[in-house]
Design a protein around this nucleic acid. Structure first.
Lengths: 199, 199
DNA sequence: TTGACATGTTATCAGTCGATTACTACTGTT
DNA sequence: AACAGTAGTAATCGACTGATAACATGTCAA
């Protein structure tokens, strides 16, 4: 840079968070193998070398993104279970909580990619354990039957897919119909996402 | 090779098919970016250069794998719709047809990866059009309501995920419970897959 | 102020990957 | 038998990527 700004120095812990946020988006868009540490660095506004050094390796960073994403979902679901919302069922509260997560671009898409890499020796176990943690939470803490928990997960996977395919901002009316159906009519979160898509 | 076998020459059309079959498996396991043309070549028993030259580029090969996978699903669903099976509903016949596709390792997993790359400029449109073709088939040819079609797709996406995560051959009883629920109790196709997993 | 540590970069390396080129060998036809 | 076309490979190249090392700069306690 010729016009060198003072270049703010930021505490390592805080910097790690911004790297994780950037990585979540980039991994969500391109997948683990498809994303580069340089793309993540650019998104985070730092150099490629710093991204690698901050987490040791690309793989470690990805695993940490996955861990955080699962934790975010767990927290959202626990809050939904605990909420004593008047007339709404647990399923409805859980569904709304999941839809709310769409707003945080990257979480659901990163998970989608993690879940697709079960074959990988290093990442596979992380995906499996994260997925099963969520299943057990639905069954044991939310009190859903195996059947209901399975159905709920299925709807979630469809939302992930529709989100990844970006069906929400095509002009296709059939796609809109499907997206509407998939998210239970609540298109608000998808719309806000279309505005933010410029990576 | 020191022990040089006569090395069979195979017609190009036939060779293309075996490359596509190998590519379907490798792409299904590792994804588009994660798979290498050399891995595909080894799986097909030929040289890396020949894989590339046979399809022009890795991307072209991937798109062709995707096209074939969608066509296979469409054919299976059309057959299920046309079948005048005694007491079973259309949904049941479609579900069974989808479960049968698991046996052909690669199809569903390749599609999972394609559907996760909506962000990609070249592959995204292919995934979107393939996905919407399947949705329209369910709605217009199988006669499912938008709601039923959406539910059916959701169950399919869960099966894909469970398959990719390889939850079917972990010792975890919770995982087995979930897999059983996801595939409607028909675990046979999953078991045969566990035996074939040695890549 | 000064020095020690923490933050961050530039430069570079070694490995990998898709693609290209030039070449070999097989096969069927006339 | 010789030719022509097809099937296939070895060798190699340039681009890219994750990682490392060496270095620079900002910050804070004493």
């Amino acid at each position: 840079m010729s016009t060198m700004e003072p270049r703010r120095r930021i505490p390592a812990a805080e910097r790690r968070e911004s790297i994780l946020a950037a990585a979540s988006i980039v991994f969500g868009e391109r997948g683990y193998a498809g994303a580069t540490t340089d793309q993540i660095a650019t998104a985070a506004g730092i150099s490629q070398a710093y991204v690698v050094r901050a987490f040791g390796s690309k793989e470690t960073l990805f695993v940490e993104v996955a861990r955080r994403a699962v934790m975010r979902i767990e927290a959202a679901f626990r809050a939904a279970v605990a909420a004593t919302d008047g007339g709404r069922t647990v399923q409805q509260r859980l569904g709304a909580a999941y839809i709310d997560l769409i707003a945080d671009r990257g979480i659901l898409l990163s998970l989608l990619h993690i879940f697709s890499l079960g074959h990988d020796a290093a990442i596979g176990p992380v995906g499996r354990s994260g997925f099963m943690r969520i299943y057990r939470l639905l069954r044991d803490e939310a009190g859903l039957s195996p059947e209901d928990a399975s159905h709920f997960l299925a709807e979630g996977m469809l939302i992930n897919t529709v989100l990844a395919l970006q069906l929400h901002d095509t002009g296709d009316p059939d796609a809109l119909e499907l997206v509407t159906q998939a998210c239970g009519g609540d298109l608000g979160k998808f719309r806000s996402l279309a505005a933010a898509a410029d990576g």
